[in-house]
Design a protein around this nucleic acid. Structure first.
Lengths: 190, 190
DNA sequence: TCATGCGGGTTTTATAATCAACAAATAAGA
DNA sequence: TCTTATTTGTTGATTATAAAACCCGCATGA
């Protein structure tokens, strides 16, 4: 949560983001107008332009913000010991999704933004690989590459169905499932 | 909905009102601080004082606003014919409650403000008596007085349980029930 | 006893958001 | 095609809210 931002900015951006998300549920981005967003967000149309150049700029900025937060979470995670689990990290990821659920739902779920999803996967792949490999004590590197792709796709899929299903489970519960899935499957490498 | 008010004012007041309502669920008015309201509403504390003198003033103003809207609804209702039902009027009343549900819930329900409830009953009594009497074609005036008190208490009770139950039914459905109850019981006067 | 803390009000300065109006661009229909 | 709406950016003046710092009164506890 950005504490350094003016309350007013935080609220207007939230309102606009929610409005955009709810519009994206009904129609594709290319026929969503600034006017609609402003109206639904219950803000003056001019206010939109104080923050974004147009609708595409808005989506791009919002996506970048999410990516930045992902990065931040992952970068700030350092396991205490060699055998430390990924659990705390995964919990934070689910919390992040929860904080941005309206938008994340439409970006990740079906009819979502394929590019966004791909960037997300790449991010997870690049950033988490080291930790997972260390944790699992990998011997067979080649086969593991595939398993790692499998993990990444599985996780993002899990994100999507959790969000689409209305987030019935808590982030902690979901993190538990996720870690379990990852570790169980990794038994083949032992 | 007050269209003449600045968006910002509308939103701030809504936030403060919701905050107050949610605090009233947990504790009595006399130990709810301005600080708490501002914090929960996510507004600057100083902003509170731009609108209200203190917490009591706030409650009073909010109650008055609700009463004014009640009055407005009732005053603007004129039956087309002698036999016209109260249905449209009742629907509007339930809509009004829905629009102010957070606050109305705590004011009307148990642990609510007894004075508020009493004022509400008196308002309904005074304003609706004419219409109901006309509609029911009353002969026995004396006994009807009691029946009318009975109706009023019944209606406000219905308001309370609908709000407390989370407003599962639509205003139109509730208005249907309400009118049915009133008319059925009134058969004894025919 | 004094200190420390907390809530109540108030003030000042800075800035975000409002509203209303506008001309240019774009879409839509006859 | 020409005409008519609709959306788009942008502007200027105004207002509401934010933030941070006050002082005050009161309580609580060392």
């Amino acid at each position: 949560m950005k504490k350094n931002e003016d309350r007013r900015i935080r609220k207007t951006k939230k309102a606009m983001s929610d409005a955009l998300a709810s519009l994206l549920l009904k129609k594709p981005l290319n026929n969503i107008s600034v006017r609609e967003i402003a109206e639904l967000a219950d803000i003056n149309r001019g206010t939109f332009y104080l923050h974004y150049r147009d609708v595409y700029d808005m989506v791009e900025q919002l996506q970048n913000e999410i990516f930045e937060k992902f990065n931040e979470i992952i970068d700030n995670y350092e396991p205490k010991s060699e055998t430390d689990s990924l659990f705390p990290l995964i919990v934070e990821v689910f919390n992040l999704l929860a904080d941005n659920s309206e938008l994340a739902k439409v970006l990740i779920s079906k009819n979502g933004d394929a590019i966004f999803l791909d960037k997300l996967k790449n991010l997870l792949r690049d950033k988490c690989l080291v930790n997972v490999k260390k944790l699992l004590k990998i011997k067979n590197e080649d086969e593991f590459q595939y398993y790692y792709d499998y993990i990444i796709a599985g996780c993002t899929g899990l994100f999507g169905s959790w969000l689409a299903g209305g987030m019935k489970e808590t982030p902690v519960e979901m993190a538990g499932y996720t870690e379990e899935f990852i570790m169980k499957g990794a038994d083949i490498f032992k």
